[in-house]
Amino acid sequence: MGLTVMTYNIKNGGRGGRLDAIARIIKEQRPDVLALQELQHHHRHGGRLIRLLAEATGARAFLSRSRLGGQPVAVLVSEPATVISARHLRRPFHHAAGEVTVRTDAGPLTVIGTHLYPFSGARRLWEARWLASRADSRRMVLLMGDLNSLDPWTDHTERIRALPAHHRSRHLRSGGEVDTRAVRALADAGFVDLYRRAGTTGPDHTVPTTHGNGGEFSRMRLDYILGTEPVARLVRSCRVVRGGDTESASDHYPVVAELDLSVTS
């Protein structure tokens, strides 16, 4: 047995009849812990939409709302995992961040789900630095979500060139340098990119999907599963899920990692 974790930006709450496809994708991957982003309207009417999605996928949902008009995020935990604690991270994120700790056979695992600022690298770095403070080399901590940031280990020249001109400023600093500061700040704090640690090969982009209308993207990896070293040592695999419903259910592909852990009740 292992622990399956997944992150997925479902684009504007799954509007337009996409929630059924999103639920199918989640059920196919069977994550023990799932981080969701862009949960537009899921906090309304007593949280009806996130409750329906949680029920459809057999999970408990812990929703975190934005204080600044952005979209909520959530961490969902499936049975038989025992949730030790859950809380909203009370920082002025444009979107939001939430933290859930579950019991495993190797001790508590803290999972942070978040969605960083899309439009400004400086603001994104600001938010990343708040999250970097959650890195603790003595603890198992996962950070999952849409970080809206390119990584500092890759040559992104062609990806930037392929972007529509009016979207390039999201990923460039004032001098024209590619802005990778958010992921770099998290890495410097001790968060390890599980995709790289697992040695995954092949296409790595998480946006855009084939039919998701992601016109602001150009085959970029913006969605990450990061972990402190005690987690990174346990990664078996990490992959971008493609094909089937994922090509149209969102403009982002989900990312899934398998860890050499088991949840306990």
Rank of each mutant, 00 (worst) to 15 (best):
E229F: 01
R197V: 14
P230Q: 07
P203E: 15
D188A: 13
H205C: 10
T200C: 04
L186T: 05
Y224W: 14
Y224I: 09
L194S: 14
L186I: 07
T228M: 04
L186S: 06
S218T: 08
D204I: 04
R219C: 08
D188T: 11
E216W: 00
G199Y: 08
R233E: 15
G214S: 11
F217H: 15
M220T: 12
P208W: 08
L234N: 00
P203L: 12
S218R: 07
E216K: 13
R221D: 01
L194N: 09
G215D: 01
G190F: 11
D223A: 10
P203K: 14
V183Y: 03
A198M: 06
T228Q: 07
R184D: 05
A182K: 06
L222G: 06
G214D: 12
R233M: 04
V183E: 06
H211N: 14
V207R: 00
F217R: 02
A185D: 06
L194T: 14
A187V: 09
G190E: 08
G214Y: 01
R219M: 05
L186G: 06
F217V: 04
A187K: 01
G199S: 13
V192L: 07
D188G: 14
R233H: 10
S218I: 00
P230H: 09
P208A: 04
R233L: 05
A189C: 09
A182P: 07
A189D: 07
P203V: 12
T209C: 04
A232S: 13
G199L: 12
R197C: 07
F217E: 08
A182L: 03
L226E: 05
T209A: 02
G190M: 03
G199A: 08
M220G: 02
T200S: 15
A189E: 09
P203N: 08
E216R: 14
T200I: 03
V183F: 02
R181F: 02
V231A: 09
H205W: 15
R196D: 13
T228L: 08
V183C: 04
T228S: 13
D204S: 14
G214W: 04
E229I: 02
T210R: 15
R196C: 01
D188C: 04
V231H: 03
L234E: 10
N213C: 12
A185H: 09
R196N: 09
T200A: 15
T200W: 00
D188K: 13
P203Q: 04
G214F: 08
G212K: 12
T209E: 06
V183R: 10
V183N: 01
N213G: 06
G212M: 09
G199E: 07
A189R: 13
D223F: 03
V231Q: 04
A198R: 12
G212L: 09
V183I: 15
A185C: 07
E229N: 05
L194P: 11
G199N: 03
G212C: 09
D223R: 10
P203T: 06
R196Y: 11
D193G: 05
E229Y: 11
R184H: 07
